[in-house]
Computed example of a mutant assay.
Amino acid sequence: MTDSTISTETVSNEPEPSDSLKAFGEAHKAFRKRAGHTQEDYAPLIGYQPSTVASIEQGRRFPQRRFVERAEEILDAFGVLKGVYKHATREKGLASWFRQWAELEELAISLYTFENRLVPGLLQTEGYARTLFRERIPVISDSEIEARVVARMERQFLLTERPNTIFSFIVEEHVLRRQTGGAEAMREQIEHILEATEPRNVEIQVMPMSRGVHAGHAGPIQLLETPENEWFAYCEAQESGRFVTDPKAISLLHMRYAKLRSQALNPEDSRSLLERMRGAL
Rank of each mutant, 00 (worst) to 15 (best):
I6Y: 07
E9W: 08
E16T: 15
E16K: 05
S20P: 04
A23V: 09
H28N: 07
H28M: 14
A30T: 14
K33Q: 12
G47I: 14
G47S: 13
Q49I: 01
A54S: 15
G59F: 09
R60G: 11
V68H: 14
E73V: 12
E73M: 14
I74S: 08
I74R: 02
L75M: 09
D76K: 14
D76Q: 14
V80S: 07
G93F: 02
L94K: 12
S96M: 12
W101C: 08
V119R: 10
L122A: 03
G127W: 04
Y128W: 00
A129K: 10
L132D: 01
E135W: 04
I140V: 13
S141D: 13
A147F: 08
V149H: 00
V149Q: 03
Q156E: 13
P163K: 10
S168H: 07
V175Q: 03
L176W: 10
L176K: 09
R178N: 05
G181W: 01
G182F: 05
G182K: 05
E191V: 06
A196R: 09
E198T: 15
E203D: 00
I204W: 04
V206C: 03
S210D: 12
H217D: 07
Q222G: 00
T226G: 00
P227F: 00
Q238E: 13
R242V: 02
D246P: 02
M255G: 15
A264N: 05
E275G: 01
E275H: 03
